[in-house]
Amino acid sequence: MKDTTAVVTGAAGGIGAAVAHALAARGATLALLDRDAERLDATAARLRQAGHRATAYPLDVTSSTEVDTVIDAVETQLGPVERLVNAAGVLRTGTVTAFTDEDWQTTFAVNTTGVFHVSRAVVRKMTPRRRGALVTIASNAATAARMDMAAYAASKAAASMFTKCLGLESAAHGIRCNIVAPGSTDTPMLTSLWADEDAARTASVEGVPHAFRVGIPLARVASPQNVADAVLFLLSDEAAHITMHHLTVDGGAALGA
C-alpha cells in the first residue's frame, strides 16, 4: 500500500482511527474524514508527528454534496484514491416501540446512506482506472438479532448488502468490495453503553441470558487493532481474489452467523 491514497471515514477515533494508523504503517497517504473536526485534526496531527502523510477533511457523510466535494479535493490534493474504508457510524439504542423517528432516520442516514454516498463517489473515480478496494465496517448485529438495537442492526445489514451489490457491479472494473463485521470492541461506542465498566465488560464476555445474548467464546472484548488487522488484509494484495466477502471479527460471539 506504499504511496497509495486511502480514504477512511469515521477516522476521528475508535475503529476508524485504528484503521488509519494501520494503513499509515503500510505507507499509505491518508485522507481522514469525520464530522468531529477537532478530534479528526488530533488524529491527523498524531499521524504526521509519527512521520506519516495524513490530511483531515471534516465532513458530514449524510450530505452527498459535501462528500462529492471532498472526494474531488482528495484526488486533486493527494492523488487517485485506491483504498476506502467506511468506518463512520452511530449507535442509537432502545426498543422499537419507544424509538423516535429522528433516532431511526439518523441511524440510517449515517450507517447506510453515508456508506452509499462515500462509496459511490469513490467508485466513480476508481472505475475508469480499473482498480481499487473498499471495506465497509458493519457489525455482527447485522446477522444476529439484538435487544434494543433494531435500528443499528438493520442499518448495518443494509450497508452490508449494499456493499456486496456494489462489489458485484464493480468486479468487472477490478474493484473489490468487502465487509468486516466486528462484535463488542473496546471503543467509545461500546463503552458509552456501560454504566459500570467492570460489570458491563463481564456481561459482554459472559453474555446476558435474559437479553438472549451469548458471550464471547474467546473470552475477551476485541481491540480496535483486531478489527483494523482484518480490514488491512481485505484491502491488501494478499486478498486480491476476495470480493463480496463478509468477515466477522467477534471472538465467536455470533456463533459463526
Rank of each mutant, 00 (worst) to 15 (best):
A151M: 10
R92H: 03
V205T: 10
V70G: 03
S139R: 02
I15R: 08
S63C: 10
C165Y: 02
T29A: 14
L134E: 03
R213D: 14
M147F: 14
V180A: 12
L190G: 04
D186Y: 11
T100W: 06
T95A: 14
A24G: 15
A37L: 08
D34T: 06
A254P: 01
R176Q: 01
I216F: 11
G251D: 05
S63I: 02
A133M: 07
D186W: 07
D68Y: 05
L32S: 05
A150E: 12
A98Y: 00
V231I: 10
T185A: 04
I216M: 09
L30D: 04
V227L: 10
D36L: 14
A219K: 14
A121R: 07
A203H: 08
C177Y: 01
V74H: 05
L232N: 12
R146M: 11
V115T: 14
I216N: 07
T163P: 03
T62H: 02
A222I: 11
R120F: 09
P188L: 12
L134V: 05
G13R: 14
A257R: 13
K125T: 04
H245G: 11
T243F: 01
M244K: 01
V90G: 08
R176D: 09
A28F: 00
T69Q: 13
V67H: 06
T187F: 06
R39V: 04
H245M: 12
A151T: 13
V231Q: 13
T107C: 00
F233Q: 02
G27V: 04
R130L: 08
A157H: 03
R201M: 07
H241D: 11
R201P: 07
S160E: 02
A181P: 03
A37E: 14
H210N: 13
V81A: 06
V227A: 13
L30T: 01
L234G: 00
T248W: 00
A203P: 04
V96T: 15
L134Y: 04
L218W: 03
G13W: 00
A257K: 08
A142L: 05
T4N: 12
I15D: 07
D3A: 12
D68A: 15
L40D: 06
R92K: 14
A17C: 11
G167S: 06
S155D: 02
D229S: 15
R53W: 03
V67R: 09
S204E: 15
T112N: 13
P217Q: 09
A240M: 11
A181C: 14
V19N: 06
D198Y: 04
D103I: 05
S139V: 05
V221R: 07
R83N: 06
Q49A: 15
V123F: 10
T9G: 10
D250Y: 06
L234M: 06
S192C: 03
R220I: 02
A121G: 12
L247D: 11
T9M: 11
A18E: 08
A6N: 12
A28N: 08
V208E: 11
A98T: 09
I242K: 02
E38C: 00
I15N: 04
Y152S: 02
L218F: 08
D36S: 14
P58N: 08
M244W: 05
I216E: 07
Q77W: 03
N178A: 09
S192I: 02
T191W: 04
I175T: 07
A142S: 15
L190H: 05
V8K: 10
P80F: 05
A11F: 09
D101R: 14
R129A: 13
T107D: 00
T127W: 06
E238W: 00
A211G: 01
N140F: 02
Y57S: 05
F162K: 01
S204C: 15
T65G: 15
